[in-house]
Amino acid sequence: MSADLTRRLQVLLDAQRYERLERLARQRGASVATIVREAIDAAFPDDVADRAAAAERILAAEPIPVDDWNHIKDELESFYQPPLR
């Protein structure tokens, strides 16, 4: 057990769910607790991990063609102009 694991949580599961966890833990050579922690991390990533994953996806994306920068700038500026009163 890792030294930074300081909180205990009790969760009641039905037999089928627990058997699934046990089977997966055996297959992976891990504890049921490890499988549960990994499932929590996958389902509820912290903001830092979420932002890092998003940044990785953006950087790995294929480049897309864009118009001339001056044209894009003009479009953005016209879109963000405050409404006339």
Rank of each mutant, 00 (worst) to 15 (best):
P82N: 07
A49Y: 06
A55D: 08
K73T: 01
R51S: 02
A33M: 00
S31F: 02
R8C: 02
L76I: 13
R8E: 07
D50Y: 15
N70K: 08
S31P: 01
R26Q: 14
R26S: 10
Q16N: 09
P63C: 00
P65M: 12
E38K: 02
E19P: 00
H71I: 08
A42F: 05
D50K: 15
D74E: 05
A49H: 12
R28T: 08
L5E: 13
R26T: 04
V48Y: 15
M1L: 02
T6C: 00
R17Q: 09
E19S: 03
E75Y: 08
D50P: 01
E19W: 02
Y18C: 03
F44N: 00
I64R: 13
A53V: 06
D50T: 11
L76T: 07
M1S: 10
S2Y: 02
Y80I: 12
P83L: 14
M1Y: 05
N70G: 05
A3T: 01
P65N: 11
A33V: 02
V11S: 04
P63D: 03
A42G: 03
Q16P: 02
A33G: 08
R7C: 04
Y80H: 15
A55T: 07
V36G: 00
V66P: 00
V36Y: 02
L12I: 15
D14L: 12
L5Y: 13
V32W: 05
Q81S: 11
D47H: 13
V66G: 05
T34E: 11
A61G: 11
A52K: 12
F79D: 05
R23W: 03
P83A: 14
E19Q: 02
A52E: 08
G29N: 10
I58P: 00
L21R: 01
F79T: 03
E22V: 08
D67R: 05
A61Y: 07
A30V: 09
L24F: 11
E38I: 02
F79Q: 08
L21P: 00
A60I: 06
D74G: 05
L21N: 01
A30T: 09
D41H: 11
S2K: 10
D46G: 05
A15S: 12
R37T: 08
A42E: 11
L13S: 03
G29Q: 04
F79R: 11
H71D: 10
A43L: 11
I40T: 01
R20E: 14
R8D: 05
A52D: 10
Y18K: 13
L24P: 04
Q27I: 13
E19C: 00
Q81W: 09
E22D: 04
D46C: 03
E62T: 13
A3N: 06
P45F: 05
R28D: 01
I72T: 12
Q27E: 15
D4E: 08
I72R: 12
I35D: 01
E75D: 06
R17C: 06
D4G: 06
R17K: 06
S78G: 06
L5F: 10
Q10C: 03
L59G: 06
P45V: 00
E75N: 03
R57P: 01
R8Q: 09
T6P: 00
E19I: 01
A54T: 14
A43H: 12
R7L: 09
S78Q: 15
A43W: 09
Y80K: 04
V48K: 15
